[in-house]
Computed example of a mutant assay.
Amino acid sequence: MIEPKMIGLVTTLGGIDLAGHYRPVFAQHAPELELRTPDEVDDRGAVRFVFTFRPADDAFDGLTGLRAIFSAGAGTDAIMACPSRPAHVPVFRVEDADQALQMAGYAAFHVHWHHRNMARYVVQQQRGEWSRVVKGLSPTYRLVGVLGFGHMGRAIARGLMALGYPVAGYSRRPPEPPEPGVEHFQGDGLDAFLARADMLVNVLPLTENTRGLIDAGFLGRLPAGAALIHMGRGGQVDEAALIAALDSGHLSGASLDVFEIEPLPPDDPVWRHPKILVTPHVASIPEPAFVVRAIRQRMRQIAGQDAPAG
């Protein structure tokens, strides 16, 4: 059983009032869990979980009774980097079927956008010009590489295969179980994976190994005419190298959803590049009810593990 009114600490998210947004949802779907802001907590030792995304450096100070930390988004890099985070407390990212479907839909749209030359037709419409590309329209002509093959990567691969695209996936270790129909690469097979990827969908987390990963050398290992769909984390793509690859013609296009600085500054050159489609970090937006239900289920599991054997 969950103890009555298990207290959770909530922080803001990029100026969004998470407490105000989520309190009604917790009240409806997890009444045992009480969400409080830092200024509403008198006894920090009584806090059992934290719901956050970019915590302040001292966010976890004094939380001696903490049992779990939950991310308000798919990423956990800012939480993991927080200097006051207690290393023994598990950190859980948002992983639900609905968010995976959102990511799969976003990837499918942008793969299709680049494969079928949709940017060209937008320009032609503005000019009233009727001109068609009639070759290479079948999805079988474009192998899609999914870089990062966890919960989200697997959903993206399934969605793309359902549309007829051949798919390859790259991960540090072989996925368990392997995804039927996907050509899997791992470990030192990155170069071989990139050489096959006519469309590259990046959903890697941000780590020391992935920061700045997509640089000039990386992009140069993609096939000529490839496109990049970047859905991972800000800080992974070298924008100058990407623009150079687009301007040279080595890459045919790019879609960017995440950036190191968000909101993206108005003077950033990617806004106006004719081969780049920019979206404001909307590849997936967690549905509050699903997030709260997942937190409730996890806290029930933790409470059960903490209960004395009898």
Rank of each mutant, 00 (worst) to 15 (best):
M1N: 14
E3N: 13
I7W: 03
L9C: 09
V10T: 12
T12Q: 10
G14Q: 07
D17Y: 03
D17L: 07
H21C: 04
R23K: 14
H29V: 06
E32F: 08
L35Y: 02
L35S: 01
R36H: 12
D43W: 05
R44D: 02
V47P: 05
R48T: 08
F49T: 05
F51G: 01
D58I: 05
G62S: 09
G65C: 05
I69Q: 00
F70E: 04
F70N: 07
G73N: 06
G73E: 03
G73V: 03
G75I: 00
G75F: 01
I79S: 06
I79K: 04
I79D: 01
P83K: 10
P86Y: 12
V89Y: 04
V91P: 07
F92N: 04
V94Y: 02
E95D: 05
A108G: 15
H110P: 01
H112L: 13
H114W: 13
H115Y: 03
N117I: 00
R120N: 05
Q124W: 11
Q125L: 06
Q126G: 12
W130Q: 13
S131H: 10
S131E: 10
S138Q: 10
R142S: 12
L143G: 03
V144M: 07
V144P: 04
G153I: 04
A155T: 08
A162L: 11
L163P: 08
L163A: 14
G169M: 06
Y170E: 07
S171F: 06
V182Y: 05
V182N: 06
E183F: 06
H184G: 07
H184C: 12
Q186A: 15
D188E: 14
A197E: 03
V201E: 00
R211P: 01
L213A: 15
G220L: 10
R233A: 13
Q236W: 02
Q236M: 14
A241V: 07
L246D: 02
L251Q: 00
A254V: 05
S255V: 08
S255C: 07
L256S: 02
E260R: 12
P263V: 04
P269F: 11
V270N: 03
W271R: 13
H273K: 10
K275Q: 15
K275G: 12
K275T: 03
L277D: 00
V282Y: 08
V292S: 04
V292F: 04
A294S: 14
I295D: 00
R298N: 12
M299A: 13
M299Y: 07
R300D: 11
D306I: 06
A309K: 09
